[in-house]
């Protein structure tokens, strides 16, 4: 199957630090590719390179066969990329509903940019669907800033996928969640992967082994290993570098 995303020799330096260094991998359609590695391995930086926030010094990003290496984030979004953030990045002073509506409004035709919000339409039904799916109906009218941490993390994912991206980058979606919430969220992400390609940064190894099809292991900005979960887990280098620390 043709990969949705191809990461080819991507690298970026911050001064002398090579935060991401010659990373290659592909993300297969409708599957979860997990990116794991110790703190500071360069995982979030890799996401920033893929989603256009940072310009790589070297390497290319190919989305659906098109080179998108130097595209700005908003154009990448329009090309079908969605992402969530490790540090919750919502519109805290707006309601849960409005956070989702804003994230979904691109589903409407351009013409409706200047017609009143709140009319029934694709954006509105998408929001209703997401509110139900992410169990936020009791909180829909609340300010995003007033939600509990776990709720904010759920909203973070919902916002990222609201515009129906073809590839979804999730940066530690379960960070700071209780164990039960983590398992719920993992199940949700697995369900999502039926319709969307997912690139997932996740620290919970149990979750990674459970739901991902492919695992990329990073250390010191480099790709240490990659392969199916079981193979990666058995890799002695990975054992030493990663599971040793965990």
């Amino acid at each position: 199957m043709k990969p949705v995303l191809e990461v080819r020799g991507l690298g970026v330096s911050f001064g002398v630090l090579r935060a991401v260094d010659d990373v290659w991998f592909d993300a297969e359609p409708n599957a979860i590719t997990a990116v794991i590695g110790p703190n500071g391995a360069g995982k979030s930086t890799l996401f920033n390179l893929i989603s256009g926030q940072l310009r790589p010094t070297v390497g290319r990003v190919v989305l659906d066969g098109a080179d998108v290496t130097v595209r700005s984030p908003h154009l990448l979004q329009r090309a079908g990329m969605g992402r969530s953030f490790q540090i919750t990045n919502l519109f805290f002073e707006l309601s849960v509903f409005e956070n989702l509506r804003l994230a979904a409004q691109r589903l409407e035709s351009k013409r409706r940019m200047l017609l009143p919000v709140g009319r029934p339409g694709p954006a509105r039904s998408r929001v209703d669907e997401l509110i139900a799916r992410f169990d936020l109906s009791a909180k829909a009218g609340d300010l995003a800033g007033g939600l509990s941490h776990g709720e904010q993390r759920r909203l973070e994912i919902a916002v990222a996928m609201a515009a129906r991206p073809s590839i979804l980058l999730l940066d530690e979606p379960t960070q700071g969640m209780s164990h039960a919430d983590t398992l719920d969220t993992a199940r949700l992400i697995r369900d999502l992967s039926r319709d969307v390609t997912i690139l997932l940064i996740e620290h919970d190894i149990g979750v990674v082994m459970d739901i991902s099809k492919h695992v990329v292991v990073m250390q010191h900005g480099r790709k240490l290993a990659e392969g199916p979960p079981a193979v990666v887990r058995a890799d002695p280098a990975v054992q030493a570098a990663y599971f040793g620390h965990a």
Partner: peptide, 23 residues
């Protein structure tokens, strides 16, 4: 009260997220 205007409001609320709405 239109999607256009709401993007401006989003800018005030959290400019860093606006590109990831596609604007």
């Amino acid at each position: 009260e239109t999607p256009f205007g709401r993007v401006l409001i989003a800018l005030r609320a959290n400019e860093r997220r606006v590109p990831f709405l596609g604007y």
